[in-house]
Design a protein around this nucleic acid. Structure first.
Lengths: 124, 124
DNA sequence: TCTTGACATAGAGTTTACTCTACATTGTAT
DNA sequence: ATACAATGTAGAGTAAACTCTATGTCAAGA
């Protein structure tokens, strides 16, 4: 299937402006129809979902841009792309551990609040 | 102990400019000495570490600002502060789950790359 | 006394990632 | 034939969170 930018925007939950911005930054390169309108494919859809994943895990646009460039170069860059992803996997793992630590501390704080509230309600 | 802004900057790993910005935004209110220089206490240190935790878990400055305001109002706001933290705990938990999902997908992708690299190296 | 170096304020500038505006074209329904 | 909604480009504007610049003050060592 092929989609117009409006359809693709709904499918991906990304604004039309954002899609054009991503194209401008070289993240995605949809085809064009005879009237110069963008034509997005299902492959573009899978790719944009992957981009969203990279973004959601904190990869900056610049780096996704680099990955996209390698991707466009095809098979010869397979290894380099895998290395990028394994490196990113590592930072992601650290992110998760860090957040778990933060959550533990937050829980401590919440417990402390519970006790304080209890104490101040008794103390009347 | 009391610290100058320079010392406090080193202790917290936050730039001097950032500390002044945080003060400007009402996140922290250090004392002043006789020459109008900022004087940070150990309590300020604990507080800034907590601010960093909130930031690292994605809480925007505006919301930390609100929390700081309640904190300055003391005991009567204990409950409201606890509610903010429990709500934040929930979003943090969702964040972690989401990142774990992303990591699983990333691992799938990396496995796929491994196979592709293997395939293309055989195919000569 | 003179010179630093750390600190003070106010406000301008930067970075990232969008998001919007202005204006021109084009495909489709009336 | 005409209106209108979707799309096109180029470039300006926005929001968040810093980060830096200009200019001034002040305590302490040479």
């Amino acid at each position: 299937m092929e989609y117009s930018i409006g359809e693709f925007s709904r499918l991906t939950d990304l604004g039309i402006h954002t899609l054009r911005y991503y194209e401008h930054e070289g993240l995605i390169t949809p085809g064009r129809n005879s009237s110069n309108r963008r034509s997005y494919s299902d492959k573009d859809l899978a790719w944009i979902e992957f981009i969203k994943r990279l973004k959601d895990t904190g990869m900056p646009i610049k780096e996704i841009q680099h990955y996209a460039k390698l991707r466009a170069e095809g098979d010869p860059t397979l290894r380099e792309r895998m290395e990028m992803l394994t490196a990113h996997r590592e930072t992601l793992n650290e992110q998760i551990i860090q957040l778990q630590e933060h959550m533990a501390k937050l829980d401590d704080k919440i417990d402390f609040y519970r006790q304080e509230i209890d104490r101040t309600s008794k103390n009347n």
